[in-house]
Nucleic acid binder design. Structure first.
Length: 355
DNA sequence: AAAGGCCACAACCGCAGTAGG
DNA sequence: CCCTACTGCGGTTGTGGCCTT
């Protein structure tokens, strides 16, 4: 026995809403509210629609202060950051973007933002190396979900100093070996030493004027004029007057602040060669992640779905639970609170984006 | 100009959690 | 504790418009 249908499917209208239906529903809800019962609402209103359909129409389209389209770059950043950290939990992401609906964000992600970020790389890499044949010759889907894979790829791409995308305000934590690679890359990419041709176009290409106030990845505010600190990798810290991420093309890992005098210059020819080797390794990780994992003795915290340790999974902890876990029915306000407590990430986010 | 393909968006579907009897 | 109705959510599908050939 299947589940009882929520309404009489034969007698409800489906498909696009007419302006008349919109007006009827809107005016009724504005006068009377939903009455706390969407299933009963269509009858009261006089619409031949399923209650769920009415609810969706109201929430996604008719309700006041809904924004459609015209996503800003800041919103892109937020969506991207949150997608990487919590996966496809659109309602939670939508809760961080006033006026945006989960459906809108989901569509925007699937149709535009994902392509913008991953480009065609995903298409070409995804299926070939990740599926394996079982003993019967059938294709077995890899255990990593598409969502997790996308997030991994995004993570790698955004950590990649050659990426032309957003500042890594709060990217998930990498494996120590990756961190090391990234940090070496950062040192090589110091903007005050611009001999490296690879980096010449990577940062501050336009009229960007950094603020003296900057924040670190942990959300702490510092001032670049503070005599107690020397910003080792200045471009990796988010200025508080940040408003144009195009100016941050190569931002990576925004927490490197060292005591004055400890900044180290590492740009040498050898280093540049190393840079290329590391880039190749990053690509290898993307292209052959299974092989890479087998080589690594340590657990790689991006791969939660491959049973890595819980302690290392703060950033990736929710993806595989999305459909089966207890998170589905959180309301927006609770979601925010829970995330604030559990992940400690939204404080950072607020600091970074509310200017 | 027409056909086919592609894309973006709206809407639907079905699953899972929750509340109440 | 169980059952049922309701709600919320994410994934998927349908559709119309635009673009390309």
């Amino acid at each position: 026995m299947g589940r009882a249908p929520c309404c009489d499917k034969a007698n409800v209208k489906k498909g696009p809403w007419s302006p008349e239906e919109d007006a009827t529903l809107k005016s009724y809800i504005e006068k009377n509210g939903t009455g706390g019962n969407w299933i009963a609402l269509p009858q009261k209103v006089g619409l031949k629609r399923c209650g769920k359909s009415c609810r969706l129409r109201w929430l996604n389209y008719l309700r006041p202060n809904i924004k459609h389209g015209g996503f800003t770059e800041e919103e892109d950043n937020i969506i991207c950051s949150l997608y990487i950290s919590i996966g496809s939990r659109w309602s939670i992401i939508a809760a961080q973007l006033p006026g945006r609906t989960d459906n809108d964000i989901k569509n925007y992600w699937n149709t535009r933002l994902k392509k913008k970020l991953l480009g065609k790389r995903k298409q070409s890499n995804n299926n070939s190396s990740l599926n394996q044949k079982d003993t019967n010759g059938n294709i077995e889907e890899n255990s990593l979900s598409n969502s997790a894979l996308e997030r991994l790829q995004l993570h790698m791409q955004l950590q990649n100093p050659f990426s032309n995308f957003y500042p890594s305000l709060m990217w998930p934590k990498l494996h120590p070996s990756q961190e090391k690679m990234i940090q070496t890359l950062q040192a090589l990419n110091h903007p005050h030493h611009d001999n490296n041709p690879i980096m010449q176009n990577s940062f501050m290409t336009s009229s960007y004027k950094p603020s003296n106030d900057v924040i670190q990845q942990d959300g702490a505010k510092i001032n670049r004029n503070d005599p107690q600190v020397d910003i080792l990798v200045e471009e990796n810290i988010i200025p508080l007057n940040y408003n144009n991420s195009n100016n941050y093309n190569s931002m990576i890992n925004s927490s490197l602040v060292a005591p004055r005098g400890e900044a180290i210059e590492k740009r040498t020819n050898e280093g540049i060669q190393q840079l290329g080797a590391m880039q190749n390794e990053l690509d290898d990780i993307l292209n052959n992640r299974m092989d890479y994992l087998q080589k690594e003795e340590d657990e790689f915290d991006c791969f939660r779905e491959m049973n890595v340790s819980k302690e290392s999974l703060i950033w990736w902890s929710n993806d595989s639970d999305t459909k089966s876990g207890s998170s589905n029915s959180w309301d927006s306000s609770n979601n925010h609170q829970v995330l604030m407590q559990d992940q400690g990430m939204f404080q950072d986010y607020v600091l970074g984006y509310s200017m």
